[in-house]
């Protein structure tokens, strides 16, 4: 009698290149809705820039050496990437897993759960790249960019998108309904958004809060992306990239195990 140690018990994921058709399937569906989706990616940051940048910025004036609208544009590139990736990995992934049973169909083919989870994570990261690109275009048109080095922010955004996707996939793997996602927004994303230097410099916060914010990935992403976008030189890049990278890897391991247990029980 053999009792094989099944994929549901395994700790480490074993993804393969078969994640590509999963990613491609999502791309093909998105292509159908591309125009409204891209308009959304442009429209929302324009509203933010107008409201915060010009509205609030007129009262604030400068942050350090920087116009407030330049400061906030570079922050919104990061927060928008976070939300785009997170929404995709929560609501859309959950829809494909439960409501549409798209994942169940994939599991009838020679795809494993790990391939699907990796394909979804990279897809969500790809969408955050689209969103960041849209904002950079808007910021460029408004003359808010420091130069062509702003393009170097895109690979950083891709890494950040992956980190936010993988952590959100943990929540999706544990969720029994869409309502569960609100906890994640209220307890994790909103505090991270407000405390990570997107809207104001972190030095304004009590030291302990700033330290706590640096335990989460968004503050590190902002530290690298803001100088790149505004024409400065980021510092301690390796450390600031290591944090989102660690979040991506560890969260992927946890999420894929949770999904294996959920789907292959």
């Amino acid at each position: 009698m053999n009792t094989p140690r099944g994929p549901a018990q395994r700790w480490l994921p074993r993804p393969s290149l078969r994640f590509i058709p999963v990613w491609r399937r999502n791309l093909l569906v998105w292509r159908r809705l591309m125009i409204p989706s891209i308009l959304g990616h442009f429209g929302e940051p324009v509203l933010y820039l107008l409201a915060f940048g010009y509205g609030l910025g007129a009262l604030i004036g400068q942050v350090g050496e920087m116009e407030y609208i330049v400061f906030i544009a570079s922050g919104i590139v990061c927060s928008s990437a976070m939300f785009t990736s997170t929404f995709e990995a929560l609501y859309s992934a959950y829809t494909r897993m439960e409501t549409q049973q798209t994942w169940a169909a994939m599991l009838g083919a020679p795809l494993d759960v790990d391939d699907i989870v990796l394909g979804e994570a990279i897809w969500a990261a790809s969408k955050s790249l689209v969103s960041a690109t849209a904002i950079l275009i808007v910021a460029g048109v408004l003359g808010l960019l420091g130069g062509w080095q702003a393009l170097l922010a895109l690979p950083v955004i891709l890494l950040a998108g992956l980190a936010f996707a993988c952590t959100a996939l943990i929540v999706t793997a544990l969720s029994r309904s869409y309502d569960f996602f609100m906890y994640y927004f209220t307890l994790v994303l909103t505090p991270m958004l407000l405390l990570s230097g997107v809207f104001f410099p972190m030095e304004q916060l009590p030291a302990i809060i700033g330290t706590l914010a640096y335990l989460l990935p968004l503050a590190h992403v902002v530290e690298v992306v803001r100088p790149l976008v505004t024409g400065g030189v980021p510092e301690a890049v390796a450390l600031h990239l290591a944090v989102p990278a660690a979040y991506a890897v560890v969260s992927f391991i946890i999420a894929s195990r949770l999904f294996r247990r959920r789907l292959l029980g």
């Binding site: 399937r25 569906v29 549409q100 049973q101 798209t102 169909a105 083919a109 795809l111």
Partner: peptide, 19 residues
């Protein structure tokens, strides 16, 4: 568990890509 966003033919070609 067909893909509601795809046509009949696209359902077959997409599923083929999983193989």
């Amino acid at each position: 568990n067909l893909d509601p966003d795809f046509t009949v033919r696209e359902n077959l070609t997409t599923y083929a890509s999983y193989f």
